[in-house]
Design a protein around this nucleic acid. Structure first.
Lengths: 228, 228, 228, 228
DNA sequence: AATGAATGAGGATTCATTCAT
DNA sequence: GATGAATGAATCCTCATTCAT
């Protein structure tokens, strides 16, 4: 997942193209007002699909499994979506859209490096809480999808993500807030991964709230697990 | 990946059933003496298969892609292996076998909690260095495979893995070496994930040696990234 | 397309069953008074359908394409028609009905062989002018449809068509108006095809009127393209 | 179908790209030496497919019908061909390749206009004799395919075809061999269509040889069917 | 050891059709 | 008259697997 430093710009969000409420949906031509008329059903189906994709992996999931889980026939899904891939697309782009809304707010707040990291981590766990399935899918499928033109926004997002985190870490090192003896790039990777991998075991509504997890995680990453 | 505390036991290695040199290979019926005749080719093919599986995911990989990468026709692979699944099986069990050989040595050494963690992490990065593809596959496919009887050893391994890491962390807390205010289970998950996710970006022969990466990682996890 | 020699007979018109204004439409059960209520809309929709069928072929045309072209949704077509096939049926039978009305008039006029041929050709080009799409569809789909019971009238029509043309040619040979050294059957085929294939390139409202084309065509067929 | 006036040139034949024996077949990547190893089977299957396409139309033909007719399972066809469409492609391009070989020979012979027309017509009926199915398919599907990039060579071929025929007719008019009072373009269309539509009723091995049919046809077209 | 050809069980997708509103 | 949503059968195609050579 990417990051960005620059403040709000019109086309700032790589996924915005897709989630822009004003833009017509991908398959608007085929089913003109379908989305306007019943965005609800669409959303329900996407939630179901996301759950199944997250559990089994995109390729290992058959359209029929999604349909079964949603309570209709496989062919009926094609009334709502162009293809299995377009479901994946919409799941990911919707998630990234919301993620960047949150990130951009944090990055625009003008916080210090440590506070920025804390805010980003907290925001991340909140996103995991809201979009667990999408995050898990992102984790698993991202690498392979990045090459496909259709999913170009994944690469964009990754670039911005790196800018946001790496940049903040570097600022922190310069400011003497973070240790200078660590390889920043390596640190970035560790931090990034730890945050997002949580999606693979996190269960919303469980013992820990996202904020609680974020606090524990930050405590560990910032101060270490060793005593003294 | 699992853990274990108890020293070598007869059935210690969950993957032993598969890698035990004395046991006949799964597909002995079809390829009578094939394994004896050319274990080399077999290994080469498995390496190729692992690479492709890691790059594309098991389900998204076709037998023909493996064959293409290995320079023979799809059907010819079946002279060497029973099935696509048995290639996956052999890749994972071989990896786990070697992993546990290393882990068991560490766990049997009678080190203190902190030193044990350090040794486990270092050993882990060494495994990633040697079995990058297998580790990546394990990361991606593990969850789904665990349910299948054939891959029952994955669950076993996971159990032992948890015992090893969680137990060591708890021992450390008790001994006052690790902070008591952290949720041990959460800490375990963070540590576990970060280590293994590294397989997704690690490139053998790159800038950092496994030991170097382990050192940086341990420094971060043990002492935190913040100054003071 | 067929022909007939005999004058008006009760069941003369093969397509009459369908177009007979007194007979209830095929799908009377479903759309009780629909036909009475809005025969206009029905005709418009059929014209649209014919155009699309002609352009893409019956099988290659989806009901949705027709609906799109007509400005309503696919399902809505079923308020007007029983099925895609019944649209095809109605298009073809309507066309054949009108065609035979014209042909029968010519054949009943008691003209000489050459004049009969001239009149039939002219009438044919007039039909092409009025029913271009239907003729094109007939050309493309006729052969395959002939076998189906529902389209039995196509075979009837073909039979009568052959009688009309072949008979006239034979009368002409006997009368010394047409050359005796030509294979009449072969000639019939050539003449028949040339006339109707014109539907594939003819564009109503273009440079040539149907009568003009008929004249040119007759000049060529009767006198040849060579000089002297 | 097109024509050309210019003598043999390297890239003269629009379909050459496809039939060039030196060029690798479309799906060479997938099944390397398949074509070299067994061009026979491939040819047999194409012949079967052509027959079914001709009888039912491309769209109305299912892959299973072809397979049934060829005595194997539907999926097995995909060992030999990439897709149903690629079968169509190969059928048409092979046919056009041979057609143009014949036409080019005629056009390069330096005959007078009347003799050229005679030779072209005769050659055409020979092609119909040899490739009846392909010609029938060409007739039915050509128009719709022309738009697709993959079948761009159909448009090329049509252009050259028009050049050859129209040009020859015009030469004949100028030379006083053909009547000047006929619309050349209209004449071209009539002649073109009649020749090729013959494929829809012609049965190889029937009463008439291609040469016999050509003679009758030429006699009719050149001198007319009327006496005196 | 490897090939070429085939199998057969799915899998994604299309599409004519239905029907409650 | 028309819509939105769904059905279910069929279609093209993929792919792991088999096997004679």
């Amino acid at each position: 997942m990417p990051e960005n430093k620059q403040p709000k710009s019109p086309q700032k969000n790589p996924a915005a193209r897709t989630k822009d409420p004003a833009a017509p949906p991908r398959n608007a031509v085929r089913r003109k007002g379908a989305v306007n008329a019943a965005p609800r059903r669409r959303g329900e189906l996407l939630a179901v699909a996301a759950e199944v994709f997250a559990a089994q992996g995109y390729d290992a999931t058959t359209v029929r499994e999604i349909a079964d889980a949603a309570g209709l026939l496989a062919g009926s899904l094609y009334y709502h979506f162009d293809s299995k891939e377009s479901m994946l697309d919409e799941i990911l782009s919707t998630f990234l859209g919301e993620l960047w809304a949150g990130y951009d707010a944090v990055l625009a707040a003008g916080l210090g490096p440590r506070e920025t990291i804390e805010a980003l981590v907290t925001e991340s766990f909140r996103e995991i809480d809201r979009h667990r399935a999408a995050v898990a899918i992102y984790q698993k499928e991202s690498r392979r999808l990045t090459d496909q033109p259709r999913f170009g926004y994944l690469a964009d997002s990754q670039r911005r993500f790196e800018q946001a985190w790496l940049g903040t870490l570097e600022r922190g090192v310069t400011a003497g807030v973070f240790r200078a003896d660590l390889d920043v790039r390596l640190t970035y990777r560790f931090v990034r991964d730890t945050v997002w991998v949580a999606a693979s075991w996190y269960r919303p509504g469980g013992q820990h709230s996202p904020e609680e997890i974020a606090r524990q995680y930050l405590s560990m990453v910032l101060d270490g697990i060793a005593t003294g």
